[in-house]
């Protein structure tokens, strides 16, 4: 349960990181993120996140029509998205440092 919640929270961060320097379409993002076993991203997690980020203005969408299928939607980061990513990076570093020190405290106690 805890792991599931943690993964869900991290998907948004991972998407913004992935789109930091380029644009990509939905399934392409899914394939790249799903290579990370720890994240375990699937379509039911990713596509709603993409739609939400686009709705909130963090992602811009370029629609490329397709003759034989649905239009392909390419996502890229907007200024709002870059700011959001920057905030998340700062928070992530702060959180990881706090957790790291806690973990070190635990291992120190165990050794004593």
């Amino acid at each position: 349960m805890w792991l599931t919640q943690l993964r869900k929270g991290l998907v948004q961060f991972a998407v913004l990181l992935l789109l930091r320097n380029r644009e990509a379409y939905g399934y392409q993002i899914l394939e790249e993120l799903s290579q990370s076993e720890a994240l375990q991203v699937t379509e039911s997690t990713l596509y709603p996140v993409l739609a939400r980020l686009a709705r909130d203005g963090a992602l811009a969408v370029r629609v490329e029509p397709s003759a034989k299928g649905p239009p392909r939607r390419y996502y890229r980061l907007t200024t709002v998205g870059r700011r959001q990513l920057s905030d998340m990076q700062t928070q992530w570093v702060a959180m990881s440092e706090s957790l790291q020190s806690l973990l070190q405290g635990v291992s120190h106690d165990e050794n004593v």
Binding site: Y25, G26, Y27, L30, E43, L46, Y47, P48, L50, A51, R52, A54, R55, V61, K68, G69, P70, P71, R72, R73
Partner: peptide, 20 residues
């Protein structure tokens, strides 16, 4: 209760994935 545009976005992604 997702809006039509949000649904459309998700469904287009899903359809694209299925076709691919």
């Amino acid at each position: 209760r997702l809006s039509r545009s949000e649904r459309s976005s998700i469904l287009q992604e899903l359809e694209g994935q299925i076709l691919q």
